[in-house]
Design a protein around this nucleic acid. Structure first.
Lengths: 225, 225
DNA sequence: CGGGGTGTTGAAGCCTGTCAACAATTGTGG
DNA sequence: CCACAATTGTTGACAGGCTTCAACACCCCG
């Protein structure tokens, strides 16, 4: 039902902003294909990624409700993006209570994920944080059939992983090295192999319950043309 | 309108759980008075606070939508709590689209705050993180008339501040010492004085825009009996 | 008055950051 | 197809923020 108002389609090249910070967007964006990330830039120049956006994720629905963007969104791979008119969203949500509720649920899920990120950046070691992040991405990609038990395509650079977990790229390199040596992950180019998902989850202290895997929670539009 | 279904009232003593992790709550809770915190306990025993709940904040509305609690909520001071039946919420949200929308907005605001916490725990120094947290609390307390330009009542222990910003209590002590020496904050018992709010905000890299101060965003029920 | 929680301080060590150099990979143009 | 540049990955040495362990001071409350 949502797909009807996301008519416009376009592509955003890797490293380009889908939306820049401060934009009062004229469109609401949806990732059809590819990876993107929410990020903030600090006064000292540092970057913190606060979320990874996977196919099916909405980018900026909150702008339509709250106000202007308090962060930017950058494409981490070439992305296919769908656009919708905020007024259409406005209209559809007022006429379709079930939709509002679904979007509310999506926002609550986002918050649950963010809480885990706070825990990772606050109290987990860098190794555990990365392991936990991999588990999260694995779980979310499973939901949209982009991962299986053996692993998934992970198009992130070490710098991007570092900016997500709040460490330096140098240290991220060592963390990944350690995870490989422990045998928890293997990597062939951009393909991440997880030999033993349960072992990784245990090491990361990962409990998949918080992802609240439900049928139609995030609007999944990945598969269609 | 919400206040009608939050009929039951009770109190929770400091240090007691309002809701424990894993609970599939029989009630939805609202903080009327006092401070509470969301927290997670890690396998190694560490605690990470992921949010402070102030008067007027809902504790666990997401359970009614998503599932069981993925974290606990503890009272940081003696708290007056209001209770509502999830089914009443259910009914009221389906019959009152505006309410669903307001709750959706509240969830989006929570996410915006959480993103700042991720940034604080990831890329800000401990001093900046604490300064930013104080700015956030100041802004939120202003919304519910519990703070003025000169400062506010801050009933947190150093341990609780440490668990929020992801440092040890020992280090939090040094951080606060530094903030006092710099003249950015002053403390008289549990009263926090901010001599120069703008100076503190500048030091913390704090931009109040993300709090999206709107009239009736979080249901404000603090003032009533 | 005593005891538990909270705040404070010091010393030593580790995780992570910083700086720097170089290797490997990818992309581009001739 | 190769050469070149740019990006990304890798490694080492050193420094610093933060942790850990430990002891002690303070304060509220029974």
């Amino acid at each position: 039902m949502l797909e009807q108002i996301f008519k416009e389609r376009g592509t955003v090249e890797r490293k380009r902003d889908v939306i820049s910070m401060g934009d009062s967007t004229r469109f609401v964006h949806l990732v059809l294909d590819g990876w993107a990330a929410r990020y903030k830039i600090l006064p000292n120049g540092g970057r913190q990624i606060t979320a990874f956006l996977l196919p099916g994720d909405l980018c900026d629905i909150h702008v339509a409700i709250l106000g202007s963007m308090d962060h930017g969104i950058v494409a981490l791979t070439d992305c296919r993006i769908a656009y919708a008119d905020p007024q259409d969203i406005e209209r559809l949500t007022t006429t379709t209570p079930g939709l509002t509720r679904a979007l509310w649920g999506a926002a609550l899920l986002d918050a649950a994920i963010l809480r885990q990120w706070v825990v990772s950046n606050g109290r987990r070691s860098a190794v555990d944080a990365v392991a936990h992040l991999i588990c999260e991405l694995h779980g979310r990609l499973m939901m949209v059939r982009l991962a299986d038990d053996s692993g998934f395509h992970l198009p992130l650079t070490q710098e991007e992983l570092a900016d997500a977990t709040g460490v330096t790229t140098v240290h991220m390199n060592r963390v990944l090295h350690q995870l490989r040596q422990t045998g928890l992950i293997e990597r062939d180019q951009k393909t991440l192999v997880v030999p033993d998902v349960q072992a990784l989850r245990k090491a990361a202290g990962f409990d998949i319950a918080y992802l609240h895997l439900m049928k139609s929670d995030p609007p999944r539009c990945a598969g269609n043309a």
